[in-house]
Amino acid sequence: MTRGVPRWVIGLMLPIALLLLWQAWGSAANNVRMPLPTKVAAAAVQMVADGELPRAILQSVTRVFAGFMVAALLAIPLGLAMGHSRAIERNVDPLVESFRPIAAIAILPLAILWFGTGTSAAIFIVAYAAFFPLVVNTIAGTKRINPSLLQAAATMGIPRFTTIRTVLVPAALPSIGVGLRIAMGVAWTAIVAAELAVGAKAGGGGSGGVGQMMFVFYAYSIELNRIIVCMIAVGLVAFTLDRLLRGALRLAMPWSVR
């Protein structure tokens, strides 16, 4: 039955059917506020054209990158140290494992208390969220190294830091790459949540970003079409970030990324 039909055509059938159903059902509902695919598309064009949406996205993405950098700078060296030295791992692990189950969003109220409702609180949340997947995957990657490589380096009298730089880090890189990808996904979710919650609790006040924009559309101007545009944008950015990161990782280590 499906012979000869390309797979992507089959894949598009359900989304198109759902959109048509939504359009028909929404039109029949006869409610001005009811979001419709056509209205969402119109709102999307408008929001992109007047630069409102790109600006908000840019702000959120900038925050994600800033927080991500902080997390990477702390987590990767720590992960390498923990994976390399049993003593360091044993002593630091309880702390990491105690905080890991606490979701970044749960820390948000404290972050607001400490850093206010601006960018620094957002960066803190992102860094916290990205930290744990990075540490865990860096440790795992460091441990997976073939011990004879380390022994060979030691036999040849290579200094410890040179060994770490030239043997340990390259061996751990694929796993760090996995950590980076997971961390990016978590970080993006966290920033949207943080902006949303800050928007909700600071009375929609000026933290900016996509999350806050969504909240303003919810609480003040009640524009469901625009909320849906934001949701789609959140999904698109998540997808794009992951693809970009995967591309970058493939360039950096073509041997390991599928």
Binding site: T2, M231, I232, D242
Partner: peptide
């Protein structure tokens, strides 16, 4: 396989939209 071909793309379209991004619409 057929069912996967039909449903999977829709799942992959929705999945990047985190649950949290649904909160404002969900409130309505």
């Amino acid at each position: 396989r057929v069912l996967d071909d039909v449903i999977d793309p829709t799942i992959e379209l929705l999945r990047p939209i985190s649950g949290i991004a649904w909160i404002p619409l969900g409130l309505f």
